[in-house]
């Protein structure tokens, strides 16, 4: 299966104001393939967001190599990374990060403002389609502050997916939602990502969320280790592996 991102011996070190060095990530190896659904769990401050920023081309590693679609990211200019990010990555944030004062539709349109050609010219239509996929086409003209948390996150999911990115990065997408809403939203994100054949990496504290993934890692003190996908409470293990195969097949066909 096609490799989207690969990290080899990646570290990220920051210099603190008192001149001490903080090693946030210590030698990460990770490969993300098309159609993967991966969960990353770990304690707060473990470096999960830092890792996600590296994968999403928002940041560069201190040492080690990251390849995005086979290209070493260190060789890319800022602009090339920005364009690649716009084309290939969709972000979903814990705090939704919708643009205040713009309607749901305008928020979903935003990434298309940075697209070329038909993506830009058909932005309204594409955004409307995407809102429809998350079940919010009736609320296209509503401002974010008039939407519930769950609805806001659905708008954010529509925005992340509107340019059909190969990779969706979700940093605690259910962190600001109650358990039930969180589950609905996560199920939606999982479904929509599967439908578009996008790889999905989710950072989460919630084992229910992690249970939706087909691979799971724990990031602890800057070290990444693979763990078993936690079983969804009340779900037989056989069902998880069955859906795993089905998704693998569809993603393979799509790639």
């Amino acid at each position: 299966m096609e490799e989207l991102v690969s990290l080899t011996a990646v570290t990220r070190t920051v210099r603190l104001p008192d001149d001490a060095e903080l090693h946030i990530l210590k030698g990460i190896d990770l490969a993300v393939h098309a159609g993967d659904h991966t969960a990353i769990i770990g304690r707060s401050g473990g470096g999960k967001s830092t890792l996600l920023n590296l994968i999403g081309l928002l940041d560069l590693p201190s040492t080690g190599e990251i390849r995005f679609l086979g290209e070493p990211v260190n060789h890319l200019s800022n602009n090339a990374r920005a364009r690649l990010r716009g084309e290939s990555v969709g972000f979903v944030f814990q705090q939704f990060n919708l643009l205040p004062g713009r309607s749901a539709l305008d928020n979903v349109i935003t990434p298309l403002l940075y697209a070329k050609g038909s993506g830009f010219w058909r932005r309204r239509e594409l955004a409307m389609e995407m809102l429809d996929r998350v079940g919010l086409s009736a609320r296209a003209d509503v401002l974010p502050n008039m939407l519930s948390g769950g609805e806001q996150q659905r708008v954010a999911i529509a925005r992340a997916l509107v340019r059909k990115p190969r990779l969706i990065l979700a940093d605690e997408p259910t962190g600001a939602l109650d358990v039930e809403t969180g589950q609905t939203v996560m199920a939606l994100l999982d479904t929509v990502a599967t439908e578009s054949g996008s790889a999905l990496i989710t950072i989460t504290h919630d084992s229910n969320v992690a249970a939706l993934a087909r691979a799971c890692y724990r990031l602890e003190a800057g070290v990444l280790t693979a763990v078993d996908v936690p079983l969804r409470p009340g779900t037989p293990g056989a069902e998880t592996s069955a859906s795993d195969e089905a998704v693998g097949a569809s993603a393979g066909a799509g790639a």
Partner: peptide, 16 residues
């Protein structure tokens, strides 16, 4: 600032 950050995460280049 936050808004600009969000836009950049969706592919806005610095020239843009």
């Amino acid at each position: 600032v936050r808004e600009i950050g969000i836009r950049r995460s969706f592919g806005a280049t610095s020239q843009r």
